[in-house]
Design a protein around this nucleic acid. Structure first.
Lengths: 333, 333
DNA sequence: TTGTAGGCGTTATCAG
DNA sequence: CTGATAACGCCTACAA
């Protein structure tokens, strides 16, 4: 009992395959009655078109691939949700290709694997288009960047400079020393993101504009143990220099570690140590973390829309969808 | 400058397309010299076969799909690494389909999307084969379970009962009250896993065999805030009942929260409170956590091998690859 | 050992 | 509006 094909549908409905194909692709020229009978045959047979055949016949495969850094963060789950819901509405499937490391990426690029045979490409956080060009990879499929920005492709991203500014503006008004913790920038040239750089520049500019300065900046890699160590080092300094102090942690994960360490030392949050995070992770509300909210799902959704419009033939110049962060003031600062 | 096809290669090498196809698929009957010239043409043209065309022509697409729960855990990154490295050796690509929620799954199943058009299927943690059958989904592609076990399909998994036993055996020898923290079982019938059930039964049986009993068991959902609250509740009881005590946390994440809470209360780890985790996450060594090590990469690698053997024609009965956990004794217990 | 031709499931073109 | 029919890129007999 093999899968029904377009032929089976055509026979069942008593029409030609061309007609079936037309209703499948929403072509204009199909009489109402014929369309109905074809639709009936399709559902009777539980027919679904073969994406491979579609693709090979020059049509769309209705698949888009998402190139995603493998980070164990809520952020990407939310992003995926936004992307998927938009693509789902448009009846596209999404396949995810994890960017495990550079060697794998090289291989992906070397062989034109399925990832690059989809109708469109979504790149999250890392802008790999550069590499595509260097390799003369004529990846002419529509591409969209999400959580990243470049001016030669469509992109959907949040304004991290603005986020940094909001944090800086707020922090500058608070009494006591100012500190900041940044996320260590990536090791590989390919896997670079300007996210934290942007947050920093926004923060610093606003702090300076307010005539203040930060006592010290720290950098931590994105893992909880490192974050905890950094928090300890920072608090050592802060306690020596005299409390209170305010810390801008450029990622909630870092802020969380700070909250832990503050509690551990018996210090009072919001009085001795004020903390401002970034991301508004699910747990931020419960822990009372003042942080910057990112409309992650919306970013994903919009990215998908940009890509879909290209897939539907839009030819205009690259578009950038910029989202604004929102400062959520809670108990921690 | 469109992508070269098999025709181009044939012309360039001065042979027929059949021959090219033969060397592509490692057929026996190709003279050494001819093979060489074809290979040369292939690399000169930077030709790579079109997976869609391959698939449609009845061959393999050299793509396998992995159905993965979207958990922000190191575990799946490691698993992916194991899977990918094996598939990569065999020149297969892997596409990931995140199991975001039930509705998406339904949709995947409803339409025979690309996920089910790959040459093979890897299901991690959740055994969805049941559902496949109910739906009369003739997903006849080879399937392998990883981090899960069932006796009607190939599977590669760790013996969680044994892991629980090792923890129980070790814990039973320690003085003071015994506690355990489990991970809340899934909400949906589809998304079920026996992992934690198994760890529990192993642990309890060993504790009982040693003539001891656990004072209290706790359950927490898999997120850090819940874990922290659970840790607090547990320690309240333990402090009231009198220390020392020993806690088996069935996931390192839970153990980590416990360590934090212990530290916060000024208690001494390994003296007042002993903690045994499960997973041996990257940070476990640095934090001195006694825990059970899972050979995650190996599990993934083996799962891939099982699938590959099916893809290469192996027809035997379902095979189960069982991995043994290893107790890593560090400072926390 | 190798080339040729038919077929895989769709879409697109072109007559009717 | 609709039905043939030629691609699409590849694999697999079948013949040579």
């Amino acid at each position: 009992m093999r899968k029904p094909t377009i032929q089976d549908v055509a026979r069942q409905a008593g029409v030609g395959v061309g007609t079936v194909s037309r209703v499948l692709n929403n072509h204009v020229a199909v009489k109402g009655a014929t369309r109905e009978s074809v639709l009936k045959a399709i559902s009777d047979l539980e027919y679904t078109p073969n994406p491979h055949a579609r693709r090979i016949a020059g049509g769309k495969s209705y698949t888009i691939s998402v190139l995603l850094p493998v980070l164990t963060t809520e952020f990407y789950v939310r992003l995926l949700n936004g992307l998927e819901s938009a693509f789902q509405e448009a009846r596209y499937d999404v396949a995810i290709f994890p960017l495990l490391d550079r060697s794998r990426l090289e291989r992906y690029l070397g062989s034109h694997t399925l990832a690059y045979q989809a109708d469109g490409l979504v790149m999250a956080t890392y802008n790999l288009t550069q590499m595509f060009h260097e390799r003369r990879l004529r990846t002419q499929q529509p591409t969209v960047l999400v959580d990243a920005h470049a001016d030669n492709v469509d992109s959907s991203f949040m304004d991290n400079v603005a986020g940094g500014r909001l944090a800086g503006e707020y922090a500058a008004k608070l009494p006591g020393q100012l500190y900041a913790v940044w996320v260590e920038t990536e090791l590989d040239q390919l896997f670079t993101t300007r996210v934290f750089e942007d947050r920093r520049s926004g923060f610093m500019s606003e702090v300076q504009a307010a005539g203040r300065s930060v006592r010290a900046e720290f950098t931590s890699s994105f893992d909880s143990l490192a974050a905890r160590n950094t928090a300890a080092t920072l608090l050592d300094d802060a306690q020596a220099a005299g409390l209170p102090c305010t810390v801008f942690a450029s990622a909630d994960m870092l802020a969380g570690a700070l909250l832990d360490e503050v509690r551990l030392r018996g210090l009072r949050i919001a009085q001795d140590v004020r903390v401002i995070g970034f991301d508004d992770q699910p747990w931020a509300a419960e822990r009372g973390l003042t942080t910057l909210h990112q409309p992650v799902e919306s970013m994903g959704y919009e990215a998908a829309q940009l890509l879909l419009s290209r897939l539907n033939g839009y030819k205009g110049p690259p578009r950038a969808r910029r989202f604004e962060p929102r400062l959520i003031v809670r108990g921690s600062a």
